[in-house]
């Protein structure tokens, strides 16, 4: 596996681009949510102002070392997922650090941020943070199982643990995408995707009414700014990963933006018209529907490749 040091710079550039896409999509998403409610909604560039504002606050208080590290871990999770996913297939520059076993590493990074947040929110000392993070861990774990099953199925189908290779095998038109060749697996993946996106009906972790507002209750100013940055990068990274594994990847930025937007909208449109599940409901839901469906999809995949 050859590696050129210049790739580091390109990866950072690619991270910067995806951060901006994430910020804009966040803004547009909220605008869509507002339009469903017959409002105008925020300006699409409002997330940028909010970010600057949060970094511009003059005072911040801390509750200890882990309180500092919580948002950092969270951001590490987001950046970690993104850096090991090939953003643009076949591009010399924007392949990031994709390597042969990257799918395993990414699966680890997806969970990493939540664990880090648990430490930070616990140190915050607010009971709401503790309640929120225990809900968050329970729910992410429940959604993680179908997610991993979906990745496992893809790995079996393509006989590879490398995302780049998976994308390579899907090239040549829509008929080669996993979405078409293995729709059952894609369905499982999309269900798991909902569970990890922190949107209704699975957003009880951050719910303002049930408990305000879960893990970030005590986070403010710069800490919140870091979390917001992560809110832009992490969902995008996940979406890019899904795009690569199930929707044929992207060969240029235009295709990437379009596909990412469409996949992201799936969670948005489900989100605006559903109330939220209680955490025990959502865990049951994942075990009752997503897990069996995942096992069936896995069995179907193994039949498919024979």
């Amino acid at each position: 596996m050859g590696f050129e040091p210049i790739k580091i710079l390109y990866s950072l550039l690619s991270l910067f681009i995806i951060f901006n896409i994430g910020m804009l999509i966040n803004g547009i998403t909220r605008k869509i949510g507002a339009r469903v409610g017959r409002r105008h909604g925020i300006r699409f560039y409002q997330p940028y102002i909010d970010l600057v504002k949060n970094y511009a606050l003059r005072s911040n208080i801390t509750h200890g070392i882990m309180f500092y590290l919580g948002p950092v871990f969270r951001l590490t999770g987001g950046i970690g997922v993104y850096l090991f996913v090939p953003a643009i297939y076949g591009s010399e520059y924007f392949g990031n650090f994709s390597f042969a076993g990257d799918l395993v590493l990414i699966t680890y990074f997806i969970f990493f941020g939540t664990l880090g947040m648990a430490l930070g929110a616990g140190e915050g000392g607010h009971p709401y943070s503790a309640i929120g993070i225990s809900r968050g861990l329970a729910q992410v774990t429940a959604a993680e199982i179908p997610l991993v099953i979906a990745f496992l199925g893809a790995a079996i189908q393509y006989q590879s643990l490398s995302v780049t290779e998976m994308v390579a095998l899907q090239q040549g038109g829509i008929q080669n995408w996993t979405m078409v060749t293995n729709p059952l697996l894609t369905a499982v993946a999309l269900i798991a995707y909902l569970g990890t996106m922190m949107r209704s009906p699975f957003d009880i972790v951050l719910a303002p009414q049930e408990i305000p507002i879960g893990p970030p209750t005590e986070y403010h100013s710069t800490f919140l700014g870091v979390l917001q940055t992560n809110r832009a990068i992490f969902p995008m990274a996940k979406t890019v990963l899904f795009m690569n594994v199930f929707f044929g990847g992207a060969t240029n930025w235009g295709v990437l933006i379009l596909k990412v937007f469409l996949i992201y909208m799936w969670s948005v449109f489900v989100g605006v018209v559903f109330p939220r599940f209680r955490v025990d409901h959502s865990i049951r839901w994942f075990y009752k529907y997503a897990l069996p469906l995942g096992l069936v999809a896995l069995a179907a995949t193994s039949l498919l490749i024979k």
Partner: peptide, 16 residues
């Protein structure tokens, strides 16, 4: 009531 269960959009419509 719907907002308390996380469906804010109904609150928007009824408030309108």
């Amino acid at each position: 009531q719907s907002g308390a269960f996380g469906l804010g959009v109904v609150a928007q419509w009824t408030n309108y």
